[in-house]
Structures are given as structure tokens and as C-alpha cells.
Write a protein that binds this DNA or RNA. Sequence first.
DNA 1: TAGTAAGTGAGAACCATTCCAATGTAACAA
DNA 2: TTGTTACATTGGAATGGTTCTCACTTACTA
Lengths: 154, 154
Amino acid sequence: MASNAVMEETLQVLKDHKLRVTPQRHIILAYLVSHHNHPTVETIRDGLGKELPNIGSSTIYNTLNTFVDHHLVVELQNGDGSTHYDYFGSPHYHAICTNCGRIVDVTYPGFDETERNLEKKTAELSGYMISGNHMEVYGLCPECQIKLGIKSND
Amino acid sequence: MASNAVMEETLQVLKDHKLRVTPQRHIILAYLVSHHNHPTVETIRDGLGKELPNIGSSTIYNTLNTFVDHHLVVELQNGDGSTHYDYFGSPHYHAICTNCGRIVDVTYPGFDETERNLEKKTAELSGYMISGNHMEVYGLCPECQIKLGIKSND
DNA sequence: TAGTAAGTGAGAACCATTCCAATGTAACAA
DNA sequence: TTGTTACATTGGAATGGTTCTCACTTACTA
Ligand SMILES: [Mn+2]
Ligand SMILES: [Mn+2]
Ligand SMILES: [Zn+2]
Ligand SMILES: [Zn+2]
């Protein structure tokens, strides 16, 4: 459950984006800010069990789509058939396991420059007016390497 | 419709990957090699009208999934609800229009190094055994910039 | 506090993709 | 060539994540 500080922070975020502050939006955003699990709609619904036991899936979808429109949240596909959501407070990209679907955050000093450079180059070459980017790297997570006998567990 | 050269090339690609050479696979692969439209399954089915009028969608899905497994083809989402497919003969990434969904190929000298660096950094930081990556840049395509009155058409 | 535009929720609808079982065929060996 | 067999194709049914609908509720503004 989200701390007081998170509740205040998320309240301010909603106001800054001129979004109507409903309990549903507030609690979902707080959930996303305090969990970095890249949850699906089902995961979120379960996680909200105590605070919003009667929330409809439509509301979760609506809310997340709104957040995506406002660039608060990004959507991720890991190949399991459902969309994963990620509060994008600080820039990072994702490593996704092709075996189990595990998604982990990655960043490194200089990543923002790589990112800016990619966007600048793309604008020049394509004529697009750039608004964002997604970078994803695929591979086997450490656990799956062991599970599949590719790496020894020592 | 695909040239002789393309048909020979794709035949060899299928053999190299030890894939059974069926007319469906051969023609679908030739279609992908000779079109860079990032088609959906529906687009492909329409494009195959004359050559394979009775192909089942299941076959197209099966074939594309096989190609994806063999890293011949990559999947792309542009937000229109269906998956787009791209023969990935030479490395590039994509600029995707957030307004109309248009997908264009982008690359530049030094892109492969950016890519390798990203994968190396990711392996170090995450412990993943890297097998690939996707980079996408989002924005408004030149046409939509005009359509939306953001850029003048001069 | 009243008016109103916007959000919520239950269930139906949608539709891209997968599954299934019957039929067809590519690859290989004799 | 022919026979064998494992794999591919097909159409139709099933699946399931997401969107739609609409009656009801609520957050904002004046
Ligand atoms: Mn993340
Ligand atoms: Mn492409
Ligand atoms: Zn894994
Ligand atoms: Zn466009």
C-alpha cells in the first residue's frame, strides 16, 4: 500500500496534468509509482484488492490509457499476450527475458545522451517530429540461463 | 509479385534455416523480402491474392511465427491493434507515427555500434544473455505534421 | 449549492490470434 | 519411382485481452 508521501506526490501529478482526481486514478497511479513490477491489468486489479475491491477492468484500462496519453506511463509487451504498464518517472529501458517474460529496468551513465542522439538522428533522417522512444533488449535472464542449463549455478 | 532473383534468394534462406519449403512459406517470404511496408497478416493475405488465393490465415500466422522464431522477421506494434511484420535482412530501426501509424525504416552510419554498445552495457548491468534488441522512435510523420497544421506545406 | 461534463462499472461485443482435427504434402530412403 | 512419415495447411471453433455501451455517479466550477 502506498505511503503518504506517494499519495501526495501522485495527487500533485494528477493536478499538474489537469486530470480529474478520482479515487481510482489516484490509487492506480500510487500503485504504479510504488511498484516497479511492470504489472498487467490483472496484476493491478489483484494488487488493489483491499483498497478498491469493486473496481471494473474497464476503469483500469481507461485510466491506464489516459496515463499513457499523458506520457506518465508506458506500455510494454513481453510476449505473454497482455500489455504491461510502467510508471516512467525516471528514464530507463528494459531487458526482457525471451523465456519467462521477466522485465527488468536498465540504465547507465550516458544513456540519456544515447537516447537524445538517437532521436536527433531520427528526426534528421525521417523528418518525423519526435515525441519519444522505446528501447528494449532481449535475452535470457540469469534465472532462465540456469534453468536451461546454459549457465552453471555457482 | 516477386522477381526470379528474390525467389532464388528466399529459397536459399529457407534451406539454410532447414525449413520445409512449401509454396506458402516461399511466397510469403518472397513477399516480405520484396515489400518493405511492414504489413499485417491482412495486408499479406491481400497482397497474395493472385498467387495464393485460398491461403488460410492460420497458415500466415504459423508461417510468420516460424520466421520470427528463426529471427528472419521481427514483429512490430504501431498501436492499431494488429501486429506488423518486417523482414529484417539488414539492421535498422523504426520511426512510428503516433497519429497515423506509418512505420519507416531508419539507419545511419554508426548505428550498429550504438546497438552493440547498448547490448554490451545491458549484459553487464542485468546479467541477461542478450539475443537481440528493438529500438523505436515515436513522433509525427511529415504528412501528419501538415495535416494537423503543425508544419506548413511549402 | 447547482449544473454539467466527465468518470465509473457490469456486461456485451469485438476481433486478432490460437487451437483443433482432418486432410495434404515435402523430404528422405529404399 | 514409390512408400513412409513427420510436418504443414486449412477452415472453423475457441480464446482472451481490450473496447464499447449505457445507466449511474461524481468531481469540478461558478
Ligand atoms: Mn520499467
Ligand atoms: Mn523495417
Ligand atoms: Zn527468464
Ligand atoms: Zn502520420
